[in-house]
Amino acid sequence: MRDGLGRPQTVLLLGGTSQIGQAIADQLLPDGGTLILAGRDPAALAAAAERLARPRRHVATLHYDALAPAAATVDLLAVAAARHGDLDVVVLSVGVLADEAALADTAAVEQAMHTNLFGPMLAVHATAARLRAQGHGTLVVLSSVAAVRTRDGLLSYGVAKAALDVYARRIGESLRGSGARVLVVRPGHVRTRMTAGLPEPPFATNVSDVAARVRRAVAGRPGVTYVPAVLRPVMTALRLLPAAVYRRLDPAQRKGATP
């Protein structure tokens, strides 16, 4: 349960090795509680658990694979709640960033869509059902500004995030009045392992900024938050821009670099 000072007690991170996810979880439990890291790689999870342990903060690990069948995700949530009590915040931070050029064969696109869209969508559905039943809790879904205006260079990624973004927001709407809620986070370019080596666009931000902003948003009411905040008006403007003008702004598209 969240306490009288608004501090969550139990946080589940789906995508337990994600840098952004770990930073968010770290900030959400500053004074102790239970952090559950759910992910694929046991060694990486164990290392992360050790790094994130603090006095009064218990870190547990569970197996989670976004590519697994839906029943596995439902079970995972049940096990996490049975072992550690009600889930106050669930952070969904699953995804791979693949340059569209690297997705040469169709099977690779299928794989990317499974990881970035299908798995997370099932997780949103399963988590929403659990939070609705427990009558409280916040689901934090890591979307991207790519969900608002998709660039050709990251086409499948952007499409996956756009679909997930819509799905999560609509599920959030359906949760109104249940005590549970969904927070969709749309960061710009965040400096992480995933984006290392990519050219840095304007308004690039750090993991710690995302975490700080999510902590404030979880304490408040918003359904969607941008990191940095300035991206809200920027993305709104970009979305309204005619395609012909937008093409001129984006160097990657001007070159016609993608197939």
Binding site: M1, D3, G4, L5, G135, H136, G177, S178, G179
Partner: peptide, 16 residues
Amino acid sequence: RQTLIGGWGRATQSRA
């Protein structure tokens, strides 16, 4: 039909 039920201190509340 769930309603928001809080404590006297107004710092805690949940739906039930």
